[in-house]
Design a protein around this nucleic acid. Structure first.
Length: 692
DNA sequence: AGCACGCCGACT
DNA sequence: GTCGGCGTGCTC
């Protein structure tokens, strides 16, 4: 008599909890470790994956059900893949069944026969590789050579436009020729149609696409194409990490530093870190590519766990680095505002309209020159809407969201919450003091800039690109095409404009308020700011005529800018990050310690507070050696969608201590019915990226 | 996470 | 009298 341990999708702790079923004789032959099966679970039929087969009789007192049926004739996971998923489950302290849930496309889990039909080709088509259009330069060749020479983790540090993709393609070519497969992760596949095209062109019929915007049917198709071995390249956003490649030889993580590799709901894994883990489990090569590597990647290089290859030459010979200048926004403040240490005589002429403030005289002049030269500009501001807030001139009242602890952002016809979507029409009297005077608009966003531009440059054609104008891939492509084909002169946008789009006619980039990301309570604030600023600046350097970047800020003396202005951007970035990393080491932050964010949220503020104190107390009492417990404190956004939020940070030098403590905590929280007692949820975010 | 059971409020 | 709200408990 044999039994199978089966992982089912339910939130059980410890996270490796499995359930034991008897294997009926009819399935003895066909069932194995990794099989996707149907089982009766509680009062319902569920899917599950066999993690272990044994002959031991069960613990007394628990009746054993039979495995119902096999969903797929062959194991859905190889032994190796199973161990990989289990190691993720342990690291992220997340139930194994729910980890597997993100690794199996929905139609497959449902197991209806019609969605399971797939064909195995009798003969795999001969591998076709189209020759590259360009030759690799020396740097690229050296990089390829050094990366393919040895397995393990490699950082490919390449400036914007230095041809990282060409290196990936060459490496994948070698992998395919060895009969292995390749995994390529990109931050947002829908933002990079160009990259997809290049891969498909080079490796015809070999690329399977995985991303969330794809229909379930297409994902299922792609999944089977990879599973059966018809296609050997899986390309996509984070979820592509779970593409069922047979024999992976390489995993590429493009724009490795990008925060969107972190899943921010459910199974909160970081696809970059998981890719490194993947490479260890499958003994294959992992390439982390970036122009602005993360502290984590650089720390791997420092400790010898990763090697590094550098690309500093621009692939397009004629293109040169853009010239960057800083503009002190304080000089643009109205006369009546006094600032210590800033000479009044240096000030610019006082602005005439609110939106003007973010178009300094220098920037206006530069825009004017660019328009006259029939070239294009990009203006970047990391905020949507017409302003950042509106306040009552009489009593200082500011509109806030009733569900979240944030101020409402003014838009042209309403006020909106950017976190929960709440919106109202602006009332004509102040709700607090009934003053009839119009509200004062403070700050600006993309819409505000658009407005100001129409005043100063009435003949300029302006395109706006933010979450309000771009709802889907189609909108995005339309806007990008319109701009690159010259249908507009100025592109105003948020982060979206920073991604790797290629606009050869852009010679001016204006960063309207560079300080925005620098003042948030997050230990990665500086790192992220510099990465974003360098990325946006890079948009100006793709032209034959030299580009320029104007950076407006209230704190030009901030170290981030000294590094942005440097002659040698790579050397300078490295210096900046090493300073950052010294601070992290001193304060015991990643990459030199493990970090987890414990967030508690609930409808009743007192209960949340009580629960957070209980958790902190429990952790302190654990007396785990070297474990630091910070908090509880209210989360930076202390209320979201009607739920009050508090958080605790825990840090540790020892991964083992860290993991064990979290397991122990979650088990206790669950067993003690704490969630119910406090009417509060506890969420554990291991290696958090967003701390808000 | 589902799903059922169970106990209180406002309906035809 | 029932329909249905969600608090509680269980899943090999």
């Amino acid at each position: 008599m044999s039994f199978a341990d089966i992982a089912v999708p339910a939130p059980f702790y410890p996270s490796d909890t499995v359930f034991t079923y008897r294997i009926p004789e009819s399935l003895e032959e066909s069932l194995s470790v990794g099989s996707l099966v149907k089982v009766s679970f509680g009062k319902r039929l569920s899917w599950g994956v066999v993690t272990h087969i044994h002959h031991a009789p069960l613990k007394e007192g628990i009746k054993t059900k039979d495995v119902d049926s096999l969903i797929l004739p062959e194991p859905i996971f190889s032994e190796k893949r199973l161990r990989f998923l289990q190691s993720l489950s342990a690291h992220y302290v997340y139930p194994i069944g729910l980890v597997m849930e993100s690794a199996i496309p929905t139609p497959l889990r449902n197991g209806s026969p019609r969605t399971l039909r797939y064909t195995v080709p009798e003969l795999l088509p001969a591998l076709r590789i189209e020759p590259s259009a360009t030759q690799l330069n020396d740097e690229q060749r050296t990089a390829v050579k050094s990366i393919s020479q040895k397995k393990g983790v490699h950082l490919l540090w390449g400036l914007t436009g230095s041809g990282k993709t060409e290196v990936y393609l060459k490496l994948i070519e070698e992998v395919l020729e060895r009969g292995e497969g390749a995994l390529v992760l990109v931050p947002e596949i829908s933002l990079t149609p160009l990259l997809t095209e290049r891969f498909e062109k080079r490796f015809p019929d070999q690329v399977a696409l995985f991303h969330s915007a794809q229909s379930p049917k297409k994902i299922r198709e792609a999944w089977f194409e990879v599973w059966t071995g018809q296609k050997r390249i899986a390309l996509g956003a984070r979820s592509a990490l779970f593409a069922p490649l047979k024999n992976p030889g390489i995993v590429v993580v493009d724009e490795e530093h990008d925060g969107s590799y972190k899943q921010e709901e459910g199974f909160r894994y970081n696809a970059r870190d998981a890719a490194i883990r993947f490479a260890k489990h499958f003994s294959c090569t992992c390439v982390l590519g970036s122009a602005t590597p993360s502290a984590e990647a650089l720390a791997l290089v420092d400790s010898g766990e990763a090697s590094v290859s550098v690309l500093r030459k621009r692939a397009v010979e004629s293109a040169s680095l853009p010239k960057l200048s800083l503009i002190d926004l304080r000089l643009n403040l109205p006369q009546e505002i006094k600032i210590p240490h800033v000479e009044i005589k240096d000030r610019f002429e006082a602005p005439r309209a609110p939106g003007d403030f973010f178009l300094s005289p220098q920037l206006q002049l530069a825009i004017d020159e660019t328009l006259k030269a029939k070239e294009q500009c990009i203006l970047f501001i990391n905020r949507r809407g017409v302003g950042s807030q509106k306040l009552c001139r009489s009593c200082g009242f500011v509109h806030e969201c009733p569900n979240c602890a944030v101020k409402l952002t003014p838009h042209s016809h309403h006020l909106a919450c950017h976190y929960c979507g709440y919106s109202i029409i602006e009332p004509d009297h102040c709700p607090s003091c009934s003053s009839p005077h119009p509200f004062l608009q403070v700050g600006t966003g993309t819409e505000g800039v658009e407005e100001a531009l129409s005043l100063h440059f009435p003949s300029a054609r302006v395109l706006r690109m933010d979450r309000d104008t771009i709802a889907n891939k189609n909108d995005l492509e339309k806007t990008l095409n319109a701009f690159s084909s010259g249908e507009a002169d100025i592109l105003v946008g948020t982060q979206m404009v920073a991604k790797g789009h290629d606009f050869p006619k852009v010679t001016l980039v204006g960063i309207l308020l560079a300080d925005m990301g620098m003042n948030v309570p997050d230990f990665r604030a500086n790192e992220r700011s510099l990465q974003l600023l360098m990325q946006v600046s890079g948009r100006a350097g793709r032209s034959k005529s030299p580009g320029r970047v104007l950076v407006q800020t209230f704190q030009p003396e901030h170290p981030v800018f000294q590094h942005l202005q440097a002659e040698d951007p790579m050397e300078s970035y490295k210096r900046f990050l090493s300073e950052e990393m010294i601070k992290r080491k001193l304060l015991n932050y990643p990459p030199y310690a493990s970090l987890a964010l414990l967030r508690l949220d609930g409808l009743v503020e007192d209960r949340v507070q009580e629960a957070s104190r209980f958790v902190a107390h429990t952790l302190n009492r654990a007396k785990a050696p070297g474990l630091q417990v910070l908090g509880p404190t209210p989360s930076p956004i202390s209320k979201l969608r009607g739920r009050h939020r508090r958080q605790i940070l825990i840090k540790s030098q020892s991964k083992e201590v860290f993991e064990q403590t979290l397991h122990w905590l979650l088990q206790g929280w669950n067993k003690g019915h704490c969630e119910k007692k406090y009417k509060t949820r506890l969420l554990v975010d291991v290696d958090p990226v967003q701390m808000m």
